[in-house]
Each structure stands twice: as C-alpha cells, then as structure tokens.
Design a protein around this nucleic acid. Structure first.
Lengths: 203, 203, 203, 203
DNA sequence: GGTTAACCGAGACGGTACGTCGGGTCTTAAC
DNA sequence: GTTAAGACCCGACGTACCGTCTCGGTTAACC
C-alpha cells in the first residue's frame, strides 16, 4: 500500500487532542460574542484557549473555518436526527408558529453578533457556504420540506409546488430584512409572509 | 450661533482636492476587481492612487466607506432622476424582463467580486447599510414600486398589496441564492419568482 | 545690473513680521524646555506660536536653526559689548569664582534640557557650530582671554602661554563631564581645574 | 523566588536568533557609514538586514541602542583583556605617541560620521552614556591609568595626582575641539597637551 | 488713496517613518 | 509526533511630521 499520496505533511487526526479542539472552539465562540467577528484574531483564540497557534493552523484552514466549526459544535447533538416541525394538521398555523419563533430569534440582540459573523463567513467563502448548507441548513430545510410534503398530502399546498422555492419565498425576505437591517422584524411580518406563501402556492 | 462643537479637528471640505478624491475612488474600484474586497488595503489604494495615506484617513472613516463611495460614484449621474422601469401594460411580461436582466447581471463573473464586496460592507456596517438604502437601493426601489402602482391601477395587482413586501418576495429569494451560492440563477428561476408573486398578490 | 542672481524666491526681510519672529522663538524655547530637543517638531512650534508652518520654513533653514536662534535671542542685549570678567588682581581667586559659577549653572536642572539641545545642534551641524562660535562663545571667550592677558601682564601667567589652550584646559574637562554625565560637578572640581591650569601655565 | 515581576512580555533571550542579531548590527553599521546617523531609520535597518521590524523592537529599545550595539560589536574581541599602553619608561614620549595616534584617528574622515553618531547618542541618552563608559571607554581608561600609575612609581608624575583629572585634562580639550570643529587637530596640538599635563602634574 | 505685491494664518497635499498588531511559518522542549 | 510556547519575516495598520503647495486676508510700499 502506498503512503497517503496527497502528502502535504498532513497531520494524523487519530492523535489529535480533543482537549485542544474543544478549548479552541470554546474560545472562538466567546471571542465572537465579546468583540465581534471582525476583531477576532487567531492569535487571541490561541491565547484564550491556552493553545499554540500552530495547533490551530494544523487543524483549520482559516479563521472563518474555526469560527464556523464553533457554530457547528453548538448545533450538534441538538436533536440528533430529531429535527421535526410541529404538524397539527393546520399548515397556516404551524408555519406562523415557526416563523414567529424565527423572527423572535433574529430579533434577540444576544444572537445578533454571532449569527451575523456566521453569515459574513458564508458569504465570503464558498467552501464554508457548502459546509453550511450541508451541515447546518440542510437538515433543518429537510425537516421543513417534510412538513410541507405533509401539507401537500393534506391538500393544503399545491402538489406540484417547488418546495425549495416555497422555502425561499418564506425565509429569504425575512433573512434579507435582517441582514440589511431594512426594517423591523415583527410577528405581523411573519404572518404576512406565511399568508403570501399560502396564497402563492395554494392548491 | 456656536461654532461646531463636535470639534475633533475636522478638515475643511472646501479645500478638498477633487483630483485626489477621484484617484482614490478609481484605485479602490480597480483593486476590488483585481484582488477582491478582503485583500484590498488602504495602503494599496493610496499607492495606486498616488495619494498620501493621510488623505484617505482624512476623508473616509474606514476601508469599507471608501469602497462603498467608489460604488456610489459609479451609479451617480447614471440616470439623474431617470430611473424608470418598462411599462408595456403587461406586468408579468415587464417583471420577467427585469428579473431576467437581474439574474443575468448577478451571473456575470465580472460583477461578482465588486457586488459581493459591496454586500459584505453593507451587512457588516449599519451606517453603510443606511447609506446604501438611501443612495443606491432607494431610488431603484422607488422606480420599481412606481411600476407596481401602475399595475395596481390597471387591476393587475391587489390594490391593498404591501409593495415593500412584494419587492421582497420578488427579489430576496434571488438575492439569497446568489449570496449563499445556493443554486443556479437561471431565466426559469426568474420566471418562477414572477409567477409566484403574481399569484400571491393577484387582485 | 543683473537682478540678484542668487534668486531662489528670497523673501524680503523688510516686510518680515517681528511679531511672528518673536512668537516662533518663544514657542521654540518653551517646547525645548518642556519636551526636550529631540521631540520638538516644527509643526508644534508653529501651532504653539500661532503661526503658519510656511512662515517658519521661509525664515529658517531647519529646526536646529530655529532653536539655535531662540538661544541667541536670549543672550542678546545681555551685556551689549559689556561682557567682562572680574579682575581683583588675584587670577586664582577670579578664576575660581568664574568656574564655580559655571559649575553651578551646568548643575541647574532647569538649564539641562536647553543647553543639551544647543550642544546637540552644534555638534551635528557645522554651520550652526560656526554661528555658535562667532555669536555666542566668541564674545565670552574674548572676555576670558582679556582677563588672562591681564594676568600675563601681572606676571601670574606665563607670558607665552597659548590662551586658547589655557581656556580649553580650563573648560573642556568640565564640559566633557557634563556632556557625558561622567561625574559630579562640584565646586571642588572647579577649584581643581583652576589649580591645574595655574600650575601648568605658571610663568 | 518570584518569577521576574517586571513582567511586560519580555522575550526569552535563549531563543534569540544569533543570525538576526548579527544581520541587524551589520546593516546598522553600513547604513550609518552610508547616509549618516540622523538619516538611518529602523525601517531601513530591518529591510537591509532582511529582518522584521518587530525583531528589532523586540531586542532594542531605540535606534540609538541598535547603533550603539553595532559599535560595541566592532570593538569586542579587539584585545580581550589585552589593552595596554606602551611603556618605554619615558612618560612624555609614550603619551605623545598615544595622543598623536588619537589625533590622527579623529582626523580620518572615514571615522568622522560613525564616531560623531556614537557621540550624539551618548550625549542624548543617559542610558547609552552609562553603557559607553562601562563597555567602551572604561577598559581603555583603565589601561591609560595603569600607564600613569607606572609613571607615578617611576617618579615622573605626582604621586597624589588625581588620575581621572589627568586623563580629562589630556583628552577633553582634544575631544572638544573635534566635537565643535573648533580648530585643527595636529601633532603639535597633541604635543602641547602632553606638555601641559606633564607640567601640571609634575611631581 | 488705491492698487498691488508680499507676507501672513491656516491647513490640505504627497510622502516617509513610526511603533504595533496579527498572519502564517518554523524551532524548541516537554510530554 | 503532537503539543504549548513563542521567535521569526512580513505586510498593513493608523498616526505624526516632513517640506511643499494653495488659499483668503491683511498690510505696507508704490503709484
């Protein structure tokens, strides 16, 4: 057997220190909350984590990747497969509940800084965008689509509706408002989006 | 009347060098296209523009502000009041044309770097976001709403539709796809968005 | 007749503002005392004096020249020709008095900064060294030599003694000690120097 | 024992790069010769040495200290204990030889710039003055005093003469002339100083 | 007594260097 | 062989001054 040909001095993950990994991700999370994404430096993460800079460079390709991983870490184990939206049989009511919760989450100033940081990374770095879609957004979107399929079966949504499009029409306006700080995020706004989608994709 | 109390050594705009201003904005524009937003440095802008660094720091608060201004500069005088959307009387056809053009613009790799740069700034800096909405997005949005009002009068759009919401539903999904590189931007996608809006906000 | 060939836009001294001249020299003096020679900037002198920078550049070739002039100003009118050393007939006693006074002056911390500044300039700039010898040191040295000649006539000093050398042997050790901070400047030290000179140049 | 409380992030000298140290001192030496002390910048030293600026700031407190060190380096290993003045038994002859050599050295234009630079630093910075006396002047002065003691034993010099004073009377006039460019440095001048000292401190 | 040339204050300009921060690489010692 | 530690080279930061260059506004000399 040939030795790993994609050689470039790859470290051996088997010997990786779990202790250091967690310390780095924890420090990254703290620092993003404290000083904001732009002002976080690898130097500071290493110092806070009590870790050599090299240890960070060895295992992550960029500052963005570290911080992204620190978000991943948070969301993991959250439900383990178990992400599932409420299904009372009334699509409108269920969507309103979910959208109002989303609006509330975005409006929480405590989440402002880290979520914005996460989005800046994703926008700037295609690789992170892929990882985001696969690891974070993907499972959630799948759960949402599952609820929509249930609605289709119940005759509350056009059977031929493009579910990706439905989700985009539902979430993108909210996302854009928040991203651009273009207006207030209120429960009424959430309701309006749900109403719009129900009308656009009625059977 | 008191002499401007917010003293901190403000420079006198009357003596500002127009020559330097244009050189800086031009250099900023070039550099963003060449190396991308993140890698542009004030140092490089000053060097390229043949200008002292202090001249930049004197008139702009941040790198983002310089680059933002360089975009503003581009769009100015573009229409001078004259932004107006086509109005053939057929809202669907007109919107499709506009949306397809927008899709094409976003897909053009030459605009990728600068537009992404602009968006990163806007997302990261509330002050720039305000300026963006007022100076760049505002006039365009107003023109779009004007077209929608025309459609309302023609009975092609619900008279009580929230035009801000209409625009968001129309553009935000497209914007999000592009921002997250979440899928291809095709003419079909543009058409689908138009169809969705027409259905959602039908009279 | 040719117009002044050494043309380079010489300003006309007749129109020079005496007010500005004094303000500049005063500010220079103050700043040297406050922050030390090395940290004085032309910018600061101009600001303190309430004068445009150009006004300084118009009339002085360098920072050193300004500061040097500020010293000249101080010493002028001091005696107008009238510098004369005490002559009681006892050379030893007279020299001791003068040397002890000199020692005391050098030891005064208030004079430390400015005198050191003056010396740094003189050492670094040959032109200023010439001006110093002519305008400041010259008259004083001449007065000292006059006293020595009186001593020669009185038979207290060798008639063929090289008076420049005598002065150097008297003052240079003191000067060097002060300049290099190589030891304490005491009245005893002054006395020792006088004794040395009297022995070396006894008739 | 407490760990060095004067904490401020002191670097660890054990890990210091000898390569960088020598490169910096070499570059400093060259630049002083080429452009003169005042025009040497830390930036230029770093560039010439192929060294990061931080490496200089890490190990030296000021430009003066770097340049001073570059002189120290030169004089080291020069004699290793071995500084010793000629002792033919004839103090006058020996001193004349030494003083004439000193005069010749000072008159050499190649040494003018660096030596003047060294002196400016010493005069301006008390810390460097101390280092100078201890590391450079000290050993040489001790050798000179040794020769003088030998002369005292031989009855050529007053047994109670203050040797520090003797050295000052011998060297300070010469030093002052050179520093102020106050006159020519000739072998005759050297002889005159020796004669003066011999007379002043004759037994 | 009115014109005009100069000096004046102010301060923006293109630059150089400052001293600091952080990036990413490399070395050392400890485990 | 990975780790914590941290020195290294490098590039950029934002600031301080440099010496030059307009600007209006006095001001003194000459018409």
């Amino acid at each position: 057997m040939l030795p790993d040909v994609s050689d470039p001095r790859k470290p051996n993950p088997a010997r990786r220190s779990e202790r250091s990994r967690r310390a780095v991700l924890g420090a990254a999370r703290e620092l993003v909350s404290e000083v904001g994404y732009a002002k976080v430096s690898i130097e500071a993460i290493a110092a806070r984590a009590g870790v050599g800079k090299q240890t960070i460079y060895r295992w992550w390709p960029s500052k963005g990747a570290v911080i992204f991983d620190s978000f991943l870490e948070l969301s993991e184990g959250e439900g383990e497969e178990g992400i599932r939206l409420p299904d009372t049989g009334d699509l409108g009511a269920d969507l309103k509940a979910v959208m109002r919760a989303t609006v509330a989450e975005f409006a929480d100033p405590a989440f402002e800084a880290p979520i914005r940081a996460l989005n800046l990374e994703i926008i700037a770095d295609p690789a992170l965008a892929d990882a985001y879609r696969e690891k974070l957004a993907g499972p959630v979107d799948e759960a949402k689509k599952e609820r929509l399929r249930s609605a289709q079966r119940a005759g509350q949504l056009a059977a031929d509706a493009d579910l990706d499009l439905v989700l985009e029409v539902l979430y993108a306006p909210l996302y854009q408002r928040w991203l651009h700080r273009a207006g207030p995020l209120t429960p009424q706004y959430a309701d309006a989006l749900v109403a719009t989608v129900l009308r656009a994709f009625a059977p």
